[in-house]
């Protein structure tokens, strides 16, 4: 999943409004940031065993839980951070094809191969996340403006990625 992960971060904001959105966005993309680091280090694995397998993502979630909990003493917030990290794995199973554990099977619906279906699923995730996030915003005379900007920008970003997918069948991460 691409921009759909932002939907999970926005939903996390609704679950615990005191958590900074930056923390939730980093949590939502944690496995992809690990992939980037591995790519720069020259040890990238195209299947994502070290970044997207079940044990890896649970390790990142535990790290996020411990780090956020120790810094803020907000252990309920730490649970939300861990849940947002874990959401990456579940969302990627819908759109991608990811490893389960070393020696285990690959899993996922591979919607990346169908950019229109991918846009639909990611769009629904973005929409749900944005609607949940909308409830965290301060009261305004025209609250739908801010929500529309968020929803429109995220959908436009997702659409750009899906069009790029349609034009170039292969977009290697590393």
């Amino acid at each position: 999943m691409y921009i759909g992960h932002v939907g999970a971060a926005l939903a996390g904001k609704r679950a615990r409004a005191s958590i900074g959105l930056l923390v939730l966005l980093v949590a939502a993309y944690a496995p992809d940031w690990v992939d980037t680091g591995l790519c720069l280090a020259g040890s990238y694995n195209p299947h994502g065993m070290l970044s997207h397998s079940i044990p890896s993502v649970f390790l990142f979630a535990l790290t996020g839980f411990a780090a956020y909990g120790m810094v803020t003493r907000d252990w309920r917030g730490a649970l939300v951070v861990a849940a947002v990290v874990l959401s990456h794995m579940f969302l990627d199973w819908i759109t991608g094809y990811k490893p389960t554990w070393p020696g285990g099977p690959m899993m996922g619906l591979r919607l990346y191969e169908h950019p229109i279906a991918d846009f639909f699923v990611e769009g629904v995730t973005i929409f749900i996340g944005t609607m949940l996030y909308a409830r965290t915003l301060p009261p305004r005379r025209r609250p739908w403006v801010d929500v529309s900007i968020m929803l429109g920008a995220l959908l436009a970003l997702q659409l750009t990625i899906n069009i790029a997918q349609l034009l170039t069948k292969s977009l290697p991460k590393c």
Binding site: A9, L25, L154, C174
Partner: peptide
């Protein structure tokens, strides 16, 4: 060399996906 270019592109995409919602959120809470 190629993998550095890919990494830069990947980092760019992650930064956009992170910074864009942050900027919109900051505007919405002003």
């Amino acid at each position: 060399m190629d993998h550095y270019l890919y990494a830069v592109r990947f980092i760019g995409a992650l930064l956009i996906a992170t910074l864009l919602p942050l900027l919109i959120d900051r505007r919405a809470r002003r």
